[in-house]
């Protein structure tokens, strides 16, 4: 049984004035005309952005050789992530999004040719999507802890050794277009500012490294962000 949760944007705890530090632009502070544009964009985002996430908790059928079988579907997160989830009895599969209203706003900015505002909105969208992912993870963890279970950290296709092409398996485990998110043949979620992931659940599961700590992508802007955020630290 899937659960859909709508989240008021304000409750995501985004520090709009520190947004740049979150995106590898530490040291940048908009001023003058740019600050006015930035503030306009944030005002518009607050009007149109409707973050939400959807998740389903499914029995874990087995973990073997970098593969994880859930609900009759085999995911391929790789040996490292699969190893971290060996003691999982259940898996929470989730997707989250900044919403279609936000997507429409970004498209309109891009269409208008206002690349500066489009850049501000895109940057904000990335932060919103990550905040939704953190929120979903906390929500799932809190619920499971109430029933005496422990949870792993969250892991997502596209990170570490887990191919983006596995997005189709994540979506196969959820209802059609969860939170209005659809998946293209290339594994791209639309709205673009969407996230997906899994969380291991079990009495004996331990929290192992995740996110930047296990990412092998050298070119990522987050390699330059000193203050790495972990949602439960």
């Amino acid at each position: 049984m899937s659960v859909t949760v709508n989240i008021p944007l304000d409750s995501l705890g985004i520090k709009w004035e520190r947004l740049w530090e979150e995106t590898g632009n530490g040291g940048y502070v908009p001023e003058g005309e740019l600050l006015a544009s930035y503030n306009d964009v944030i005002r518009e985002i607050k009007k149109v952005c409707r973050p939400a996430f959807c998740y389903e908790i499914i029995e874990c059928e087995g973990v073997c050789d970098g593969k994880l079988t859930v609900g009759g579907i085999t995911l391929n997160p790789g040996k490292r992530i699969a190893g971290y989830l060996e003691k999982a009895e259940k898996i929470a599969v989730y997707v989250g999004t900044a919403g279609t209203g936000f997507e429409d706003y970004c498209r309109e900015l891009n269409r208008s040719g206002d690349v500066i505002r489009a850049f501000f909105a895109d940057t904000a969208g990335s932060v919103i999507a990550e905040a939704v992912s953190s929120h979903a993870f906390r929500h799932i963890s809190d619920k499971e802890q109430e029933s005496g279970d422990r949870t792993s950290f969250p892991y997502s296709p596209g990170h570490c050794e887990w191919p983006v092409s596995d997005q189709k398996f994540i979506f196969a485990l959820l209802p059609d277009t969860p939170c209005g998110i659809r998946l293209t043949d290339s594994g791209l979620m639309i709205p673009v500012k969407s996230v997906s992931g899994i969380v291991g659940i079990g009495k004996n599961i331990e929290r192992k490294p995740f996110g930047c700590a296990i990412c092998t992508f050298e070119g990522c802007y987050k390699k330059h962000v000193k203050d790495e955020r972990h949602p439960v630290d």
Partner: peptide, 14 residues
Amino acid sequence: KGDLHDIGKNLVAS
């Protein structure tokens, strides 16, 4: 083809 990411490409174009 297959990719809908706009912003990086638009930054370069600008």
